[in-house]
């Protein structure tokens, strides 16, 4: 009985959130916070008209491209810095500087330098995300078990086997960490990028609705986007994590 109850706990918690929203919206009785049913209806209509899928698709495409570039580059550079003390000492200050540049500054500079183009938008997101990935993966590369690397050397496993079977499983938790924090960070930055310099995508739409004070549409787009990210977590990241961690007690 208790186990069944636990299984439904996440659903119950979501329902409780909707309930709180409903109570608040009813009490306030204002256009600034419509009730869940109104937002649900706007969401449904947006889906039927194809507007929400179109803008959501554009934003997701930007997310996939910028996120993939940032992860690939970040993993490579992170591993190199984690294993090479001299390079790490040289580039450490660069990392600190890039980590501390506000996302907005990078976005504006990219638009100023490269124009209001798709490349500038993607580049701005990559530059914002890259230092975070590098720092996380660098920590993973530093923490690689020296004993296991020695074992691999002694048994002459070769570069490919060592990378695949000794290094990668140790880096995996760090890559997953960078992926999770990365997704959360990247989609927020993409919305700002779209708001400032693109004519499509969820960010652009949110800005339009802000000018019209259309809170129902603002919430509808937010819910649609968060739902997609949650789906990604549940359908892709969690199964990957479970598979990779099956050896743990």
């Amino acid at each position: 009985m208790l186990i069944k109850f636990r299984k439904f706990l996440p659903v119950l918690s979501l329902l409780a959130l909707v309930l709180v929203w409903q109570v608040l919206a009813t009490c306030l009785n204002s256009n600034n916070l419509p009730i869940p049913l109104v937002v649900g209806n706007v969401l449904w209509q947006g889906c039927l008209s194809g507007q929400i899928p179109y803008h959501l698709g554009i934003t997701l495409l930007r997310l996939v491209v910028s996120f993939s570039i940032a992860m690939l580059l970040g993993c490579g550079i992170g591993v190199v810095l984690g294993r090479n003390k001299k390079l790490d000492a040289f580039f450490d200050n660069w990392l600190v500087i890039f980590l501390n540049i506000p996302a907005l500054v990078t976005i504006i500079l990219c638009y100023v330098w490269f124009g209001l183009t798709e490349v500038a938008a993607i580049l701005a997101v990559v530059i914002n995300k890259l230092p975070n990935v590098i720092v996380t993966i660098r920590e993973g590369a530093r923490a690689l078990d020296q004993d296991l690397l020695e074992m691999a050397r002694c048994y002459r496993l070769g570069r490919k086997k060592t990378l695949l079977h000794v290094v990668w499983p140790q880096l995996y938790p760090y890559v997953m960490g960078a992926t999770r924090t990365g997704l959360a960070l990247v989609w927020k930055i993409i919305l700002v990028v779209e708001l400032l310099g693109r004519s499509n995508g969820v960010g652009f739409q949110l800005y339009s609705f802000f000018q019209l004070f259309d809170v129902a549409n603002l919430l509808a787009y937010t819910i649609a986007f968060v739902a997609i990210i949650q789906l990604l977590e549940l359908m892709v990241l969690k199964p990957l994590d479970t598979k990779a961690q099956r050896w743990r007690r």
Binding site: L148, M151, C154, Y155, R156, H165, P169, W247, R248
Partner: peptide, 27 residues
């Protein structure tokens, strides 16, 4: 040439089974 080394700490890969650990070492 080929060196078999039994370390003080067994140094097995925790994400591979007993058989997979042994198989990995065999060229």
């Amino acid at each position: 040439s080929k060196i078999g080394y039994v370390f003080q700490n067994p140094r097995l890969l925790p994400w591979r089974t007993v058989r997979e650990n042994i198989e990995l070492a065999i060229e």
